[in-house]
Nucleic acid binder design. Sequence first.
DNA 1: CTTGTTTACAGACCGGCAGTCGGTATGTAT
DNA 2: ATACATACCGACTGCCGGTCTGTAAACAAG
Lengths: 237, 237
Amino acid sequence: MNTKRHRMAADDRRSAILDAATTLLTDQPWEDVTVAGLLDAAGISKGGFYHHFTSKDDVLAEVVLRLSDASISAGEDSLSRCGGTAVERFSAFLAHSARWELSHAAKIAAIVRMAMMEGNGPLFVKLGEESARRCLPLFKALVRDGVAQDAFCVVDTDLTAELLMHIGRMRWPTFLGARRIFADGQRDAAWRMICDRVRVEEGLTNRLLGLESGTVTFPPLTEYWLVLDAEWQNEAP
Amino acid sequence: MNTKRHRMAADDRRSAILDAATTLLTDQPWEDVTVAGLLDAAGISKGGFYHHFTSKDDVLAEVVLRLSDASISAGEDSLSRCGGTAVERFSAFLAHSARWELSHAAKIAAIVRMAMMEGNGPLFVKLGEESARRCLPLFKALVRDGVAQDAFCVVDTDLTAELLMHIGRMRWPTFLGARRIFADGQRDAAWRMICDRVRVEEGLTNRLLGLESGTVTFPPLTEYWLVLDAEWQNEAP
DNA sequence: CTTGTTTACAGACCGGCAGTCGGTATGTAT
DNA sequence: ATACATACCGACTGCCGGTCTGTAAACAAG
């Protein structure tokens, strides 16, 4: 009773809770996040919490949506805005995505760290499902257009799109690895790791699309310096 | 007290519990499997159970090992037994694996069903990790040898191996899809789905390895008829 | 056949967890 | 002022994973 009763707009309260959950998730696997802890972090009572969410997992689902939405939306509308030939479109899409990712490096790093954390299987799977649900169609469309224009020559549209997405999914975990190496003082090795990764992705992308190496292009390597350069909070110990 | 005390050899008891867990897992996600339920299914008390396992998750870990070990071991020693050129070795490995899989279709199907079940993220992830831990090195070795012999021309050994494994991982989920379609009466469509899948895998494998289509070969399509033909228990409702 | 020791097992018990419920405060419309 | 809706509270419940104390079976030694 001594606790003052803060009444907030439903949406504000929801996002406050979601924020708290996201924060907790940065250094705890979801299994270890308790509703009590979440209540504490969000400054609300159990009754209040269950007025806004139906279950603990309900919160996770929303968190996943919030985490993935920004990046996926960016991809979706970058795609809708690039024209030209299939090859140009593909390269433009790659460039837009890369730039968006690089300018949100800290946030992406945090998400990847969460997803890769021990005991966070559910989060990892849900994020994967969500990105498959929304990103795969993008890649498929891109590939299909190229095939229709006789620009690409793929073995199979769907599997090719899936592999392209799979490659992209493993990019940031690799970047984080480089980042760690960089922090260890092996700066050259770290930078080489990043350059290699990008070059390899470009090579594989062209190969999967049935193109000469260098046809579809990734942004210039120098842009990726941001991966190592950016100041991030919450670095792993 | 009225319960008779069955005293068993430790190993027998362990595997009895593991069997029970595996059975429960066929129609329940791991989250929903309770220790009490497991106790009941295995016919043992709590004290007995915790004498053999340190935790519920300990059981899952063991189950994962048991599920994955047979197939992975088969792969490992089939690899060790095939000689010849890199291309021959690769094809032989593919053939051995395919035949082993096809002759254990029911079991594989059950495992895949478990892993793909809603709310079984942890199982899915753990199985993936285990197969990555043991299968990836196989693929890497295969690819590396081919490159060393100038037989393969890959963009990057490691990523190529990873993609090859990823393709393989998605094979049986696809087969199960075909199986469902088959059960629905669309027999031709189901069979076409399987043939397409195998052809596409073969095409992509050759492309990733930098080979002319048809160089590395999968077993003849007719062998895959077993996917649809075999009598399996526990078909999904 | 005793005795002692180890090992497999039993089941009462515990702390903590997610989720519920009756009730209370804080608006907003009439 | 009255009535209704909505945000919120915290005691409570039921269950679940895990521990603990104790007991019965197997085995070894004398």
